[in-house]
Design a protein around this nucleic acid. Structure first.
Lengths: 298, 298
DNA sequence: GCGCACTCATAGCCACAGGCTATGACCTCA
DNA sequence: TGAGGTCATAGCCTGTGGCTATGAGTGCGC
């Protein structure tokens, strides 16, 4: 199924702005371009999607009903894109940073950008730096005092660190839609899973740790493939290499859209806590404290 | 805060592909472009974000640790964009459609695209048409037999319709961060909210119905502004026009990033069910039945 | 009733982004 | 040592997307 050309984010933003500002011209000014350029872009977007999006009148433009829908979906795409940009900002500059945070992959990808966004919102003057590394290394860096605050997933809390749970995650087993397990009629049980070669994250990652702890004492097959990022693992699973075990956050949308199928699993607890950690005896101050309070909130 | 230019979705897709395929050339072929073009794009992306993304070696390219992170975030953006495209596909063609579905706004924006995606995945030959209209009109169209299946939010289930709950949603009160309510120390109670002019959706919408039912019997102020889409209401609230009442789905990401602040509310139940509805006595068949089973699953 | 102020669309121009092919440098393995 | 893979560079060309200038339509107020 060919994926009919992705839309252009600037045009989507423009569409959303037209909806909110009520006129093409105003939206153009908001985007810093001239009115005719905006007009052309919208026409192009309409042609590309094959749907009329805005209702032009001599005193402004409003979204058609299709336009409202597209704008709604577009807003979600844009929110995700802005999250990406925020996270990249935090990752980029290694100097002139007032708050340095380290985080393991899963928390970083799915939760930290939002927290950083809100921190930025509350204290715009704070420059945040974010490093994404393994859970094991996060603990080491925090212990060494190189960073004030870290986020980790996984079962244990190393000595010398204080922590607070800021969320939970559940590991799930997923397979490609064509895999036999996608249609199995019996529930998968831990021993069978443990004895199956899997696509998994690398040792030292929080995901892998959790899995290893859960399988302790069972007869285990070696991994079929070890990969260093959630999306690589997902890709391999989708390609049918083998079943994969991954964070529920990571596969949520793939399962929802049927690109991957979740295999129900019984008899083993793969829920794990996501924790903020800092050095015991060194209470957080300033922006680090603010970030912790943001993260712990809901 | 200027929003440092949105990234280009094709380049992001390319980056993700490099991560999954292990080489620039293969990713280029997957994208249907020549290898040098892909190379240039990635360089540009790296320049744009200010972060090195891939590690070039003579036998392939792998993502740097920053690259893995960016790819993870990019995958989320792409998933949202694909959801948009799927939804637009379903909205577009009004002819040659095998299954026609109507849905009210909130369900359509936040849940229906995923269900359609999975339906498409299971039964690729089915052409799906989606109309997004008010809850009230959904009921009318389903009753009239114009469409087999509809999705509505809101309290009541009209006579003549059968339905099944496929999810729940909670209305929330949100204000701009600068609004006095963002810092109020006392919990907001229903009578005060009812007596406040609000930004709300138009009459006939599921959101509005739910609100009106919840406020029945209270002294009410007229709305400050009535708008026809969730994003318009959000925009007005963000601009500080007045507090808004909206679906929790709609404001989730805005609240998480601090663009809007949720005001805790006591003494009134604003949880509502999202229902699939069809004509009583006419059981669903074919693709409509499949879609219902997809929607009811988790 | 006639401009004025606002909408959006069209036309024509220009620059550059992003595609292509051709080629070269580098590494690995048979 | 050559074959087969990697990626980068160079040079070319097209089309996209920006701009200004202008026209056409609507409503408002003098």
């Amino acid at each position: 199924m060919a994926m009919s050309a992705l839309p252009d984010l600037d045009s989507l933003k423009l569409l959303v702005d037209v909806g909110e500002l009520g006129s093409l011209g105003r939206a153009a000014r908001a985007a810093g371009i001239a009115q005719p350029s905006a007009s052309k872009r919208i026409v192009q977007l309409e042609r590309g999607l094959g749907v009329p999006l805005i209702e032009r009148t001599p005193r402004g433009s409003t979204l058609t009903s299709e336009g409202k829908m597209v704008a709604g979906w577009a807003a979600q795409v844009l929110a995700a894109a802005e999250e990406l940009m925020r996270a990249v900002q935090a990752v980029r500059h290694r100097e002139a940073v007032h708050l340095r945070v380290v985080s393991s992959m899963t928390v970083a990808e799915y939760l930290v950008p939002r927290w950083l966004g809100e921190l930025q919102n509350r204290e715009p003057e704070v420059q945040v730096g974010l490093d994404v590394i393994n859970s094991a290394d996060v603990a080491a860096r925090v212990l060494a005092g190189e960073v004030e605050l870290g986020f980790v997933e996984g079962p244990g809390l190393p000595d010398g660190l204080a922590g607070r749970v800021v969320g939970t995650d559940r590991l799930v087993v997923v397979v490609a839609p064509g895999h036999p397990w996608a249609r199995r009629r019996t529930v998968l049980r831990a021993p069978e899973l443990a004895a199956t070669p899997l696509v998994v994250r690398e040792p030292g990652s929080g995901t892998r740790e959790t899995l290893d702890v859960a399988f302790r004492g069972l007869h285990r097959a070696g991994p079929r493939l070890e990969l260093g990022s959630n999306s690589a693992v997902k890709g391999a699973a989708q390609a049918g290499v083998a079943p994969a075990v991954l964070s529920g956050y990571a596969v949520e949308s793939d399962v929802a859209t049927g690109r991957l199928v979740e295999v129900p699993l019984a008899g083993v607890n793969l829920v794990r806590n996501l924790r903020a950690v800092w050095r015991r005896g060194r209470p957080l101050t300033g922006p680090a404290a603010t970030l912790l309070s943001i993260a712990s909130r809901p």
